[in-house]
Design a protein around this nucleic acid. Sequence first.
DNA 1: TTGAAAGCGCTAACAT
DNA 2: ATGTTAGCGCTTTCAA
Lengths: 330, 330
Amino acid sequence: MAKIRDVAREAGVSIASVSRVLTGARRVSDDTKAAVLTAAEKLGYRTNYLASALRRQATRTLGMVIPRIANPYFIALVQTIEESAQAQGYELLLCDSADDADIEKRRMRALLSRQVEGIILIPCDEKGSAETVREALREVPVVSLDRSIRGIAMDQVCVDNRAGIVAIIDHLAGKAHRRLAFVGAQQTVSTARERLEAYREYVREWDLPSADRVLLGEFTVEWGEQAADRILADGLPPDAVVCGNDLIAAGVIRTLRARGLDVPGDIAVTGFDDIELCRFIEPAITTVHQPLRDIGTEGARRLFARIEGTSGPAARVRIRPSLVVRASSG
Amino acid sequence: MAKIRDVAREAGVSIASVSRVLTGARRVSDDTKAAVLTAAEKLGYRTNYLASALRRQATRTLGMVIPRIANPYFIALVQTIEESAQAQGYELLLCDSADDADIEKRRMRALLSRQVEGIILIPCDEKGSAETVREALREVPVVSLDRSIRGIAMDQVCVDNRAGIVAIIDHLAGKAHRRLAFVGAQQTVSTARERLEAYREYVREWDLPSADRVLLGEFTVEWGEQAADRILADGLPPDAVVCGNDLIAAGVIRTLRARGLDVPGDIAVTGFDDIELCRFIEPAITTVHQPLRDIGTEGARRLFARIEGTSGPAARVRIRPSLVVRASSG
DNA sequence: TTGAAAGCGCTAACAT
DNA sequence: ATGTTAGCGCTTTCAA
């Protein structure tokens, strides 16, 4: 692999001149520039990023840690961050925490070891992630996306979960649904917690017993399937099921239909997130659309502001979602 | 950020001793080790990867370039590669080529600049990728996955597309389907080409006219929807549609049902890849299951063999897929 | 405008 | 077992 030395020799100039040409410094004659470019091209020279970054003490690299790379929902956020990074001339290092706080810590440390200049994190666990973030914050700015962490001074950008749940309940109430149930996930992340809390608080304005008709498991299709059977085991089932996310809704719908019920005729079902699957399920799922692009760009904006040191106190930003009415809610 | 100097001072030893302790070299006394560990912990020291990698001339890092990070199918391969990399003590740098040969070239160069020790590539374009690969091969081993590139000496691991299509046609023939059609994608990647060729060659053993009943577009749901309408416009439509992948099949099914036809009653439909969506569509899609784990591990195995210089001539490996029969093929 | 040389933070060879 | 030091490949003073 050709080094800057080789290019200098080939071009008949000093290595300083080669560096100047390649980094775009101004003070170079056209002759030198041409000679260097020719030599570099001829030798297939490529700047050694390690040496360059070590010397200039800048990597122009961002890190991002997400709970699961296989989740298209998170990937949509990755895309947005990647675009923002590219626009600023930064590269993105993506890591998967496998929804495990220990792995998340290891990944964050690996990113810091690689001297990333900032980190975007989708925390995997509200408790476990806090310590990791605090450690990282001592070295670089960190911004959390999608899920928030309480009691920590950092920029956090997420959807207004409460507004989403309120919109869903208002919609169902407008369709004359009265007996509601909520199928959500255990309270390990803020989204699970906030959606449940919003449901509990808001639904009692319509129907008190509905506030206690709550089942908590995981954000998966499988849990939705199980939960639906539990709901049906009840003597007088609800006429609408508010789900914590779309995957759960897909599972609930599948089981309800397998048991011979009509959705939404017998029971309406709603989701949250508006993942692509919503349009493929029959009936298509009524849900809350996540403003992923807005969340991502706002997160990146704040991270870069911190990197440049031009930002004020840490803030928690909540982006308003929108209701998407489809067939599953009658 | 604490440096090795600071730790050495804090521990009252030389920087060499700190390095020895942290890199796990043997020749250190227990006292020194303890002192270093304590000091490092106290200062929150983390080895600077840039300096370390530059010095040892080894990054223990692999690069991977895939056409689209949003495609869960590719992500399944990423997961496998990541696991293999971790098992070897390597980290993985993931890049998205956005299905664009120019971007792919830029990404590959960025990886080389970062001194990755090997690259796993899912080429975005059979023509455009060849040159990029040849360039990269001058510096590090490159292994292609899922899609192959003709006329280039490198390890390539992909599914046996022909075997998959043959299995599909045998299955449909066994169900007494005779008038077949193929809906695939333009021939920019090997998978599109090989599946079409296999269809054309093999279907004529059953029904000659079927070999010409071919529509080519993209590997998307939207194209499947359009293609279905074109198929129906024909006076005497086929009784089974073999699709180039599952997304196309999903689109075909959606349109056929929207036009009032029964799948598979009126027309059977099959896919290729066995993505998750297959089980959610109604009717669930009969398809060819990709042995993604096998492809990934075999690719990683070959890459590491090349990195260690313990491998023979470049080879093209074809992994056998399996047929998954579901409701869409009657 | 150009070149010589220092030094980024670390590891490993060499000396002790 | 430990310390001293050269040097990985590059960028950026500093001089000329």
